[in-house]
Amino acid sequence: MNGALLDWFRDPANWTGPDGVPTRVAEHLRYTAVTLLIALVIAVPIGAWVGHTGRMRWLVTGANAARAVPTLGLLFAVSMLVGPLIKSDLAFVIPSIAVLVLLAVPPLLSGTYAGIESVDPEARDAASGMGMTGSQVLWQVELPCALPLFLSGLRSATLQVIATATVAASVSLGGLGRYLIDGLASRDYTQMVAGSVLVALLALVADGVLALLERYAVSPGISGRASRVARTRATSRATADSTLSVGPAGATALAGTSSERDRT
């Protein structure tokens, strides 16, 4: 088995052409990036607004409850609805991206919301009291303070999208999922395993990159890297993290968003 797998990776044929590894990885990354971009544009302003004003919290709760819908089913249902309406490749790209966006929005929304909401009200008060304008308060105080929770939302959204994009191969989307689905169809087990290894690696690398970004972007004053930081704070953050990061393919989360739990 391992020998066959190595042979697969050594075979130059698997590294070139439209189903070569570089192309598939690039496709996979492209879907992920497009999805995340759209999801960010939707989720961050809404999350920031809800966190800032404290109004319409049900948006966040609702988005989280929607995670109970199995992604695979949604993917099939949407492609069957939309597919026939569109000619060309977009017939499976659009439904897939739409479902992936739907999947990425809840963690980003809860992350942004919980992050902004967790900003010390006194810091916010001091900021406007010293003459910062609304957008200065947002950019200079609220967003930097919200960064850890936002980034953990981004990490779990990224993982879910990478994982679920694999599943979307079953509705003819390109990317690494093709190796799994095509391998299944042609009973080429080696190809399936190779694809799985690649997806797992891609997920690990993406998570690693985001973890680095987190180290670099989050102020040590918040992340606790500046040595002694109140224990309670570290704990509550960790708790929020664990509830936000929900993730492998088609994963969902209904219960205990960080905000809900913070309140009890």
């Binding site: 006194e122 003459g131 200079q140 105080v141």
Partner: peptide
């Protein structure tokens, strides 16, 4: 904004920016 920048404002728990 101008008004506020012209006065110092100190509150109970200082409200320092943690980041």
């Amino acid at each position: 904004a101008e008004l506020r920048r012209g006065m110092g404002y100190v509150i109970q728990h200082a409200g320092l920016f943690p980041h």
